[in-house]
Design a protein around this nucleic acid. Sequence first.
DNA 1: TTAGAGTTGGCCCC
DNA 2: GGGGCCAACTCTAA
Length: 550
Amino acid sequence: MEAATAATAAMVWFRKGLRVHDNPALDAARRYGAGAASARRLYPVFVLDPRYLRPDPAASSPGSARAGVARIRFLLESLSDLDARLRRLGSRLLLLRARDDVADAVCAALKDWNIGKLCFESDTEPYALARDKKVTDFALASGIEVFTPVSHTLFDPAEIIKKNGGRPPLTYQSFVSIAGEPPDPIMEEYSELPPLGDTGEYELLPVPTVEELGYVDISEEEIPPFRGGETEALRRMKESLQNKEWVAKFEKPKGDPSAFLKPSTTVLSPYLKFGCLSSRYFYHCIQDVYKSVRNHTKPPVSLIGQLLWRDFFYTVSYGTPNFDRMKGNKICKQIPWSENEELFVAWRDGQTGYPWIDAIMIQLRKWGWMHHLARHSVACFLTRGDMFIHWEKGRDVFERLLIDSDWAINNGNWMWLSCSSFFYQYHRIYSPITFGKKYDPNGNYIRHFIPVLKDMPREYIYEPWTAPLSIQKKANCIIGKDYPKPVVDHETASKECKKRMGEAYASSRLDANPTKGKTLNSSRRKMPHGDQDTSNSTISKLLKRNSRAE
DNA sequence: TTAGAGTTGGCCCC
DNA sequence: GGGGCCAACTCTAA
């Protein structure tokens, strides 16, 4: 009876979905074999991926090649918490280390432990789809039952696409009108789980610390104020939802991006990313609050609206080939971004000379989290606003450093902010000076994340290069020595960017409709007087290029 | 073909 | 802090 009896052992394979509540994969695995004569066994498994966790000394900040140390820490905390919660139910987390490939490690365990049913949450990211296909193919070929419920998102992206005639809805409103109401979460609370199966010769690891993973030089790193795990996720959610008036009045664009001691949003995104919090359970709890108040805000700006945005991007990303790049991506504008490694590095390392931009990038590196509008500011600055650098470069930095880094949402928002898709009003540029000042005129946010500027007087904190030398000396911060001079002039850079965006758009109109001269004429007529010469020459260049192409 | 809508800009004026 | 303008984008629905 010690060894797992055939066909009554189930494995729940955790990847995202690091929670016990509203977890259909866990629920199915725990029910497997109920009523059968033989004893039931449950194997709750997580596989550590060395390619995700191995320190990369060549990286631009502490962490692995794929993830900054803040997210790695968050993941480890989430695993510890999951293990603790499973232990309270008489089980535990079986932590395995993959030698190389995670899928291979899962397949080996399935075979060695004689698993009859494998349950894991469906994951729509390309990397996960490939990995999961490998495991599913192996399991089915071995006669193992496989169950992969959709529970990371409110809705099933494939179903929404089907309802929309085979194509993903490309506007939020059309998404919302198709989506309807999400399925209810599983509300049952377990008092116990089936006993663990025998793991034989397998080495079961305790959840490692970041230090044990080989991150040695991080003692001086600021530890982000957000702890990983389901317990913290539920606590945080309850705390946010307790203030019913705040929930009812929540309007995303009105939040303060410079608030960092007490962020103006819930900061539940990293918990949703790892599945420490179920989006359906969160949705359900918000609806509960709405029932008890007279009025509440509505999508897209409301809290519910934010969850729907998440699902919107998941759906579009699932139905769009090459969603994570410009080339070969049908919904992405083809824009001739420039290459400038020096400017890019200044942006990435928080050395642009614009304190508002640099403070945000430093918060990203240290905390792995910034307010949504702060992300907008720096994304606009890197791409269409000031530097005209490819959104994929910025996407890579965010993807590695954010603790809530989410493939669908991150790529979607980078296309949005760079006016490559979804949003096209490239004349609207975030000012690296006035935008932050509006919320935080004293520059407290800047002073916290860029200590060298902490004594800069209020009137110069957003533009320290304009401070007289005597003031710089008094503030112990000489611009050009202690803090960089601006790497671009926003005035001229943003004008140049608008011009280039206009040209790129004109070019894409030509590509879309090469036979129609009409569109071209009308766009020429709309050109402002001062730019007449350059725009005409640009258009003639485009025409030439276009005729060559034909 | 066209009108209207689109999560969250800056600037100036009151 | 609210409203209108800037200069004009794309996509959808009719």
